[in-house]
């Protein structure tokens, strides 16, 4: 891999005050790097949904972005409850969100399906009681 840029961000669970900051910072950075707007939008939406999932459900997590000349890869790992039924969690409209999360405008059951929709390649692994890992790849060209 011909890596040209890599950065890791930490995201804290339940930190609603800063929720969204990492994804908006990533978007601003991608604009500065001159990535095409339609690619930036896909990356930003996938990152924001993943960031909100960490804030809403996990204790702590990291978001690592690797950019090379062909693709942007986002790896999201969290320490949290994990997902019991990944197939069900990938169903549009299925949600385990609390009232507080819904009041923030989230928890419509669109998060994971929307991450997948905006990804060219998407992998999800989860272990109950341990956490969840997402690998999101979006090709630049």
């Amino acid at each position: 891999m011909n890596e040209v840029f890599s950065q890791t961000y930490e995201i804290r669970g339940n930190d609603f005050q800063n929720a969204g900051k990492v994804s908006t910072d990533i978007k601003t950075l991608l604009k500065q790097l001159g990535i095409r707007p339609e690619i930036i939008r896909k990356v930003a939406i996938a990152c924001y949904e993943a960031e909100m999932n960490i804030v809403m459900y996990a204790k702590i997590g990291t978001m690592r972005m690797d950019i090379d000349t062909e693709k942007i890869k986002i790896t999201v790992s969290d320490q949290g409850p994990g997902i019991a039924d990944i197939e069900l969690a990938m169903t549009e409209g299925y949600s385990t969100a609390t009232q507080e999360m819904r009041e923030m405008g989230f928890g419509a059951g669109m998060g994971l399906p929307n991450i997948k929709k905006n990804s060219d390649e998407f992998k999800i692994e989860s272990t109950l009681g341990i956490g969840t890992k997402l690998e999101i790849t979006i090709f630049i060209n």
Binding site: G20, T24, M104, G105
Partner: peptide, 22 residues
Amino acid sequence: PGAVLLTGLVNPQTIHTAYISE
């Protein structure tokens, strides 16, 4: 991209969502 958002939700997430979604 390029839309106006009408909403009753007034919090920072509304702004983040707008910025992310163009």
